[in-house]
Design a protein around this nucleic acid. Structure first.
Length: 429
RNA sequence: GGAGACGUCGCAUAGUCAGGUCGAGUGCGCCUCACUGCUAAUGAGGUAUGGGUUAACAGCCCAUCGGGGGUUCAAAUCCCCCCGUCUCCGCCA
């Protein structure tokens, strides 16, 4: 959630952000009113409570010959106050709940740099490499479904048979490709100072809510039947909740984790989109970078995350573009988001392979993660950022399609050869 | 899955089975000061978080003893639920 102080002191800034995102501006006024009501109810409760405590003390201290009488009288008075306190407490809780509910509906304040508008209003920041010209090379590229079949790497039919549509088996070199990508990603992450992490793929509602994903339960997130647990759509969830309810020492920051986990997505709202192949699936593995840092350093760290993502795509020898995602297409937690989109030859367009978000203190506030303030300063929420190092399925799609050869074989990018143990993937039988 | 024990201020603990002056004692750690040629030792003081009020991170007030609810004028303390940890048994990779 956003900083209540910013809401109170600079409501126009919050309104402008909501407008930029295409979100409701009236939420801001609702939250401001709720804040006033909340503070008033707190004052009422505290006044009564202080009175109750004072009387209670007198009851305990009543001594002497007429103690019994005094006590009886005090008890009568304090009983009435107790009832009032109970009422005021209930009113306060209600006001407090209304306030947090209102506050949570407001999205993070979009960065000045973030383009206004919706999904199509992104700005291309950079284009790296040139899409391969198959026409000039004189052959028609095969899509990853066909290549996957030829190489014995992807089995979609049996994926559907066993688990349904949008499921798949990676077999043979397909499975090996996953391990190679993970190894390459983890190697890079480790060298950059990230701590490798195997994270739980299930999380509690607090962790989901803290990262802003609980709202997507209906169309995006799987819930475990009979348990209060959810399958995570990204290891951002467990990695963010990892330090929840903690106060981190300043020299602990920046803290960088590279989390590896399965990711589960319902894709309920995307019927008809990417129905072929493994571009959009219900389960895939991902290596995610997650950083805790100070608010001041967040924007710079965001750039660093982007650079690490680009480094990885470079290692896969892909052509890609970097876009600055528009405000309306950001998640509720992010102030700015960079997507790296790799060129997919058979689609003739760039598709998202990785994504880096700066969530500033939005998630940290919800998850109660703070950094210890300097001498004389109070503790304050940290900033959290996340970025994909590699999402396996889409990386495989891009690699197979980009580096295919006329006979259906696929050249293995240099960096991957070390981990895959071969230079070319050749069709089976 | 069955049986039991436990969860207190950075750490370790006291307080709970007799409810009130306990936001909470002690030791260690840490910070400041004093003493000391330096270090150590010793002595004095300090050392949680959130919120309200406020110019104030001065003061005052409120909340918080794993979380939530209940009993009571009053709850760390009594009752219920949940979460977590540990031990034993069963099961299992």
């Amino acid at each position: 959630m956003i900083d209540p102080r910013i809401l109170r002191d600079e409501p126009d800034r919050v309104r402008a952000s909501q407008r930029k995102r295409g979100a409701s501006e009236s939420l801001v006024d609702g939250a401001l009113a709720a804040d006033q009501a909340r503070r008033a109810s707190i004052a009422t409760f505290e006044e009564l409570r202080a009175e109750q405590k004072a009387l209670g003390k007198q009851v305990a201290q009543a001594k002497g010959p007429d103690a019994a009488e005094m006590k009886a009288e005090l008890l009568a008075r304090t009983k009435a106050v107790a009832a009032q306190v109970k009422e005021a407490e209930a009113a306060q809780r209600e006001a407090e709940d209304a306030w947090t509910t209102a506050l949570k509906q407001i999205r993070n304040i979009a960065a000045d740099e973030t383009p206004a508008g919706g999904e199509d209003d992104f700005v291309v920041l950079e284009t790296v490499g040139t899409p391969r010209d198959f026409a000039a090379e004189g052959f028609e590229p095969r899509d990853h479904v066909e290549l996957g079949k030829l190489l014995g790497a992807i089995d979609l039919e049996r994926g559907a048979k066993v688990a349904g549509s949008r499921f798949y088996f990676l077999t043979g070199v397909g499975a090996e490709l996953e391990f190679a990508l993970i190894n390459l990603a983890m190697e890079q992450a480790r060298e950059a100072g990230f701590i490798p992490v195997i994270a739980p793929a299930l999380a509690r509602p607090e962790a989901m809510a803290g990262t802003g994903f609980l709202d997507q339960v209906d169309d995006g997130v799987y819930k475990i039947e009979g348990d209060d647990l959810y399958l995570v759509g990204t290891s951002e969830v467990p990695l963010a909740a990892y330090h929840s309810d903690e106060i981190l020492d300043t020299d602990f920051l920046p803290r960088r984790y590279a989390g590896y986990s399965s990711c589960f997505r319902k894709e309920a709202g995307s019927a008809g989109k990417d129905t072929q192949g493994i571009i959009r699936v219900h389960q895939f593995e991902k290596v995610e970078m997650f950083v805790y840092t100070s608010l001041e350093d967040a924007a710079a760290e965001h750039e660093r995350l982007l650079q690490w993502e680009k480094d990885f795509l470079d290692k896969l020898e892909l052509a890609y573009q970097v876009i600055d995602v528009a405000a309306g297409d950001l998640g509720p937690s992010a102030v700015r988001k960079f997507d790296c989109e790799a060129w997919i030859p058979t689609q003739g367009k760039y598709r998202e392979l990785t994504s880096a978000s700066n969530c500033t203190d939005f998630q940290a506030r919800r998850l109660n993660i703070r950094q210890r303030g300097a001498e004389g300063e109070s503790n304050r929420p940290v900033a959290t950022l996340n970025g994909t190092l590699t999402a396996i399925t889409r990386a495989i799609v891009a690699v197979l399609e980009t580096h295919q050869q006329p006979d259906g074989s696929v050249r293995v990018p240099k960096a991957l050869q070390k981990w895959l143990g071969r230079e070319v993937l050749t069709p089976i039988a």
